[in-house]
């Protein structure tokens, strides 16, 4: 068996699975996006770019896209920053490492829908723990989930809570990979502690991990859906409408599957762009 033949043979199972479960459906979605297909309808017709043109004029899509970008814009820097900070603090004092790691990682493991219900109780305008706390400080009350100005940031806060632990674990793994001698060299050179050491050794050595974390978090944030579906349904008045929820509503509330497929294509383009950024930057840093 020659090298090429065996490569093909060995990758064949994975390729077949990918074709059946990933590429096939993807092609189907792309094809659907050029039709007026409606779930359950007996026929469908080719409509060309109509779905995509409609999208550009659809106010809901525009709001939903803007909201998603704001959501990503808040969740990514905050959860990456907090994750890094938590990892650095835990590294600095490893005595309670296990406890912190578990408590930060819990939200990652927990089923988000169940957690969303807990959040709903916590954020309740009258009886929620958060508002009680604020009242004790002389603030509020705020109706976090029904106030048009607050709702998106409330969801972003939950998103941060959900992502910090994961990011922290990634950074902790990254920190263990920093050679000890580099820290020692920094100490001898006069950058032994605090910010100087972070700037000279830690941060540059965490570069690849940080990039990976940012991209992963961005992709995860882009896919925000569970909390929106359970807590707000995109409301009030579309103030928390996000892309996946819009797609969901078009497909399963209004049965406009052709249009939803077009939205999916756009959504996937965003995700692919993010992945491409990662591949591009990682590929470049290797040379």
């Amino acid at each position: 068996m020659n090298g090429r033949g065996s490569v093909l043979l060995l990758t064949a199972p994975a390729l077949v699975l990918m074709a059946v479960f990933l590429i096939g459906p993807l092609l189907a979605v792309i094809a659907l996006s050029f039709t007026s297909y409606q779930l359950g309808a007996p026929s469908l017709s080719f409509v060309g770019m109509a779905n995509y043109i409609e999208m550009t004029e659809d106010a809901t899509v525009r709001i939903s896209l803007a909201n998603t970008l704001i959501y990503v814009g808040v969740v990514v820097p905050v959860s990456v920053g907090l994750g890094l900070g938590a990892a650095l603090l835990i590294e600095a004092d490893p005595s309670l490492r296990g406890f912190y790691r578990a408590s930060y990682f819990l939200p990652v493991m927990a089923t988000l829908i169940a957690m969303a219900i807990v959040w709903e109780f916590m954020l309740d305008a009258r009886f929620g723990a958060v508002n009680m706390l604020l009242r004790a400080m002389g603030l509020g009350p705020y109706d976090f989930l029904h106030d048009r100005k607050l709702v998106l940031y409330t969801l972003a806060g939950i998103g941060v809570w959900q992502n910090v632990g994961f990011n922290m674990v990634l950074f902790m793994a990254g920190l263990t990979a920093v050679p000890r001698e580099l820290y020692e060299a920094a100490a001898v050179d006069g950058a032994g502690r605090g910010f100087e050491r972070f700037k000279l050794v830690t941060w540059p050595m965490l570069g690849p991990v940080t990039l990976f974390t940012v991209v992963i978090t961005a992709i995860r944030a882009f896919q925000v859906f569970d909390t929106v579906k359970v807590l707000t349904e995109g409301g009030p008045n579309k103030a928390s409408e996000v892309l996946l929820h819009t797609i969901y509503a078009e497909a399963f509330n209004f049965f406009r599957n052709g249009y939803a497929a077009a939205l999916v294509v756009v959504f996937l383009l965003f995700i692919m762009a993010l992945s491409a950024v990662r591949l591009f930057v990682l590929g470049r840093s290797r040379t």
Binding site: P179, E181, L182, E184, A185, V188, L200, V201, P204, M205, G207
Partner: peptide, 11 residues
Amino acid sequence: MVFQSYALYPH
């Protein structure tokens, strides 16, 4: 100090 792994700052 000169280290066994040289410990140069890679960036």
